[in-house]
Design a protein around this nucleic acid. Sequence first.
DNA 1: GTCTAACTGAATATCATTTGCAATAGGAGG
DNA 2: CCTCCTATTGCAAATGATATTCAGTTAGAC
Lengths: 157, 157
Amino acid sequence: MQLEELKSKFEQFLRQRGHKITRGRFEIIDKIANYGPHFEIEELVRWIANQDRSAASRSTVYRTVRLLQEFGAIREVIKLGNRTIYEFVAGKPHHEHLICVECGKIIEFYKQEIEELQDRVCEEHRFSPINHRLEIFGVCSDCKEKKHESRGMEVRT
Amino acid sequence: MQLEELKSKFEQFLRQRGHKITRGRFEIIDKIANYGPHFEIEELVRWIANQDRSAASRSTVYRTVRLLQEFGAIREVIKLGNRTIYEFVAGKPHHEHLICVECGKIIEFYKQEIEELQDRVCEEHRFSPINHRLEIFGVCSDCKEKKHESRGMEVRT
DNA sequence: GTCTAACTGAATATCATTTGCAATAGGAGG
DNA sequence: CCTCCTATTGCAAATGATATTCAGTTAGAC
Ligand SMILES: [Mn+2]
Ligand SMILES: [Mn+2]
Ligand SMILES: [Zn+2]
Ligand SMILES: [Zn+2]
């Protein structure tokens, strides 16, 4: 598994910056790696708090999330209202997201052509892109079906 | 000027929803229309507070911004950190943004092909898009030049 | 082991935004 | 105009996400 490799890279990263190797930090990496691709900080905090021998306080979770962002293992991918959804990157290739506003489902996609067109736009503006985020909000197929099923109960259409 | 038209549309909108036509609300629309295409709420609040006869409190600004969003005159276009940048829509066609992380400059662009590709992706996933946001963060040409000029002072490269 | 700087948790602060509430002002009907 | 009722306002207090302070605890260099 490449999680071990990631951890050892993170260890290097920490050493280079004069940080210490602590249990909490590595528990958090573990949790994130096992959580599914997307997560919010509050989920992590609650999950960790529920552990028997809790590994880290809310403060430490926030601090570690920041470190992991700088390290490059996680990334902010969706900003919706006051919520921030992160993603565990871990060598996963770059991609964008469809977000269902009904059920919250997140669908990942990648379109080479979109990426290329973005580069072209940047060139046209002599702009050097560092990163980007494309969020498409809408209704997923499941939720559309649900609405369809309950059609008979609607008050007029 | 179409601002007057917009205001009268807003008036209709308010009436339809049983709201009242108040001075504050229309002062705020004015400020937004005269502010430049993008703004943050705090800017509005400060600007309005600096007026001699202040037109609206912070609460009213927030409440009115919400109304104007529902009305469709403004839109959240950039989410960066804890900042939200709005834009005065006013019949302007849809577009996306390049954001300079050095100086904060915002460049607008529109690529038909990107929009079409997004639609295609949505179809592939039987996803009904409602709206989307493409933010490209990077360094603008001016800021690149500035860096270039000061090259001699850099500590190694 | 010793020592010190980095780390931790808990409480507190901050920042953007929302809400409760009492006072005020639209505007419909007279 | 006047009256009345309800929406609106401003302010203070509440939220919710995240950051910071600080005193006590550890990692890990020597
Ligand atoms: Mn993803
Ligand atoms: Mn714009
Ligand atoms: Zn859905
Ligand atoms: Zn710039």
